[in-house]
Amino acid sequence: MSGGEPLIRWDWIGSHAGYLAGLAGRHLYLSLIPVVFGLIVSVPLGIACTRWRWVYPPVLTSANVLYSIPSLALFLLFIPYTGLFSDLTLIIPLTLYTLSVLVPNVVDGLRQVSAPVSQAATAMGFGRLRQLLQVELPIAVPVVIAGVRIATVSSISLVSVGQLIGNGGLGVLFTDGQQRIFPTEVIVGIALTVVLAFAADAVLVTVQRLLTPWARTGRAAA
């Protein structure tokens, strides 16, 4: 770093607001799509794991093994399949990573339903499907959303590594800042990533409150 360069040049941030917003938008897209895909896969998979218990151990082991593969290496291994600069090279590995958090949380959530509750539902004439949709899934919501929150925050922080294979997002600020030896850009990139993660987390907390109104009244009564 050259002696005259300040740690942060505030005027640079002001003059690049539009550029930064564009990068943040692309960053959000690249990190949230995998969470959505992960949820689409995990909910049916989690339901299958609770219906047929023998499915769960192999699914869990595979998800954990996948999760232990370093992100950069996994992105690189997908290049031969999906190509360099393709969004899929980033989205597929990130989706696989979310499974290791989402599947166990869906299973734990569904297993939380106590025997008296499911007996009551059966007594009220609920069939299997209706019991799943109107009793088990709603009860599982808080645990599932707890998993979604972890998956979202890690996904947002991991996406910048994708810039090394040319995927854009806020990671651009890191590679560009490195080449120009420009700390402002790097610090802004880190700050915006953390802001995005916290904002997404706050939105998910609100979603959970809206989806589980009974939790609030329960707490108020207690």
Binding site: M1, I156, L173, V186, I190, T193, V194
Partner: peptide
Amino acid sequence: ANSLRALPTLGLVVLAAVLST
């Protein structure tokens, strides 16, 4: 721990490199 999880790896290592001589 939650805040640490939100930090981007690439950004932190680049910052360390850019600030060091």
